[in-house]
Design a protein around this nucleic acid. Structure first.
Lengths: 140, 140
DNA sequence: TCAGTTGTAATCAGAAAGGTTACAACAATT
DNA sequence: AATTGTTGTAACCTTTCTGATTACAACTGA
């Protein structure tokens, strides 16, 4: 089981928007670079727009960054595209037996450690910015 | 999208095995504490056994820890039950366009950061042991 | 008005998880 | 040796979630 590819698709999308910022970057264009259906890209553009990371021109078309690449982190993207729902990264089994001394307190016993692990991952994501990612594509 | 509940089920399972170690702990008994089907527990017991964390008595029945609770970490459990496949925690979109300057190098641009995030999470999981978890169930 | 795009709904197929049934293999007990 | 309880394992089903795809209304600029 893995985290949705929406994170890598969204990061790819933002990289394309910035790399080709002198042209009109449409969902079709992005889709051809990412290799997915344009509608998938549009849905992600919507999420990135809702998160305040980009502007999308309705009608005329084209997406542009709303913030500097150095001010957009992987964590921002991760959160924007809802990789993980409210319940957290780890999925708890839902029916532990409340009448069992272990089952009744298993949540309490695990939640803190799992939350820490999730935070550690998010903290790590927050240390990479879109600017870092774009360095890979910079002309030599 | 979330990580399989196998991690929490497996941790719950090990806690039950240790907490009730003076009795015979069968898959049916564990299943009633966890609140899932006994076959699900058996599948997980198999994985924990393959990982060298427990012994399972075929025929007569009952599972026992093979290591000290302090020597079993959440990371050991996480790895034992295959929460994440080889490809890593993050799922990469599979068909980036190799002919696009961005699509052709997006993997290279993201892989290191994503691997770091995954490692940060695993490192955090490795800091909690079964002994820590059992403290919650210790008699007052 | 027209052409090109975005926003969005609806539907589909495929994958993966967990639930469930069933039963052979096995070990201890009688 | 037969019985009993349990594990190992296959098979099948249902549910859920992506992402793919089609379709089309809404919108913008030329």
């Amino acid at each position: 089981m893995q985290i949705t590819s929406r994170l890598t698709v969204a990061a790819h999308t933002l990289a394309v928007i910035e790399y080709f910022k002198n042209a009109k970057v449409t969902s079709d264009f992005i889709a051809s670079s990412v290799g997915v259906n344009p509608v998938v890209i549009r849905r992600i553009l919507l999420q990135l727009k809702d998160a305040g990371l980009i502007d999308v021109a309705r009608g005329s078309g084209g997406a542009t960054l709303k913030k500097q690449p150095r001010d957009i982190t992987l964590l921002d993207i991760y959160r924007a595209v809802d990789c993980v729902e409210e319940g957290g990264l780890f999925h708890f089994h839902e029916k532990p037996n409340p009448d069992c001394p272990v089952g009744g307190r298993i949540h309490q016993a695990l939640d803190k450690s799992l939350a820490k692990a999730q935070q550690a991952m998010e903290e790590s994501l927050s240390q990479t910015t879109l600017a870092d990612i774009l360095k890979t594509f910079a002309p030599a």
